[in-house]
Design a binder for these strands. Structure first.
Lengths: 205, 205
DNA sequence: TTGTGTTTGTTGCAAATGCAACAGAAATTT
DNA sequence: AAATTTCTGTTGCATTTGCAACAAACACAA
């Protein structure tokens, strides 16, 4: 069964698991006192945002379809002014973690297949997080860039890669100063490690 | 039902999920071509290790009881000389991801309860990873330290915290140079942010 | 006890980084 | 088409960081 179909069916058979719509600019959820909430993004895009002490907007994470998020994945902290903002119109599947423990109906046929899909999605999330941690663990911007590039390259089986978002966003993802990153990219070009044309990078090593 | 008991029972009823023993110094698993393998550490301690290009030992992750690991959580990369080393005698529950999809017996009563435990463990892993990412995203050593300290402080509801491992290990966890971290700790003391006595830190803010 | 290895603490120095600021290009909105 | 916002590219400068090296404290095993 296709994933979207499954979600569709479940929304109809389970009262506790609902597909909901959010228009661009609206807040999908706030991370406060809903410790067991889990959301699956079915379509659209959304950002996990925090305003830090200085009032700066901090994009903690960006979600696209099939991504899973919600307070259930976040540690209980004081600094919990976290919320998820729809940056495009979104369809979101929302439920409480406990809802999957108690079978929805006497014999909901979707239940077990849904759980295995859920496991798969979470597993996927862990893999992405490990990738991110691997990159962030690198000590220099150069190492972070090379590490990121080679991951992209491995994924696409090619030495020519396309950065899937703006350089500004890339700097956020690598968690480094943008101008310092630009400087380092230039230096990678000068040192003959890469070629660059817009968002396209060619690895020369 | 208690978690250890559950694991015990499952090892007896499922042939595909086995409890295995590894003595200190032995290799629990290598991350190579076992893309669906999942392990749950029941007792002991283990490190996820890689030797980098220069032959330096890199401790990617450290596991203690109830931690879950295995190649299933790691991206497919070329640099896959990853392996898990038992740093103490270990009991490990080992299985393939697929084993949980196919019911072990006609009516294995442990199956669904096991899956919900598994979900809980993975959820826990994601929470820890989010914490790690949050810390690693900070740009300076000072911010990383403060962030780490305040997380510990929130967890224990106290301004007095104890770093649960050596400062050398802490530097690894924060992914910064140890001597630079020591310097920064000293500077935090000088600036009146913290007091320090061995592994005990008192937050003054 | 002696020796061996690990952890802590410290410093100088060179290199990397963040920060601030600015101008032009590109994309988006009005 | 004009206006506005976002993104790219660049630079100088002060600060932070990694690196190398070393000594003292500590832990552990022979």
């Amino acid at each position: 069964m296709d994933f979207s179909d499954l979600m569709e069916d479940i929304s109809h058979s389970c009262t506790k698991m609902q597909k909901r719509f959010f228009s661009k600019g609206s807040i999908i959820t706030t991370y406060m006192e809903k410790r067991r909430q889990i959301c699956i993004l079915l379509s659209g895009k959304a950002d996990l945002i925090r305003y830090d002490l200085n009032g700066n907007k901090d994009i903690i994470d960006r979600f696209s379809p099939h991504d899973i998020f919600g307070e259930a994945f976040y540690p209980v902290n004081t600094n919990n002014e976290l919320f998820v903002l729809a940056t495009e119109d979104c369809e979101v599947f929302v439920f409480l973690y406990d809802a999957i423990q108690t079978k929805c109906k006497a014999n909901c046929k979707f239940h077990s297949i849904f759980i295995s899909h859920l496991l798969e999605l979470i597993l996927n999330k862990v893999v992405h997080q490990n990738t991110r941690i691997e990159i962030l663990s690198k000590r220099t911007i150069r190492e972070k860039l090379l590490s990121y590039f080679s991951i992209l390259s491995n994924k696409s089986f090619s030495k020519s890669i396309t950065i899937p978002f703006s350089l500004t966003t890339l700097a956020d993802y690598l968690s480094v100063d943008r101008s310092a990153m630009m400087r380092e990219i230039k230096s990678l070009i000068d040192d003959g490690f890469i070629l660059k044309n817009g968002n396209k990078i060619k690895l020369l090593y």
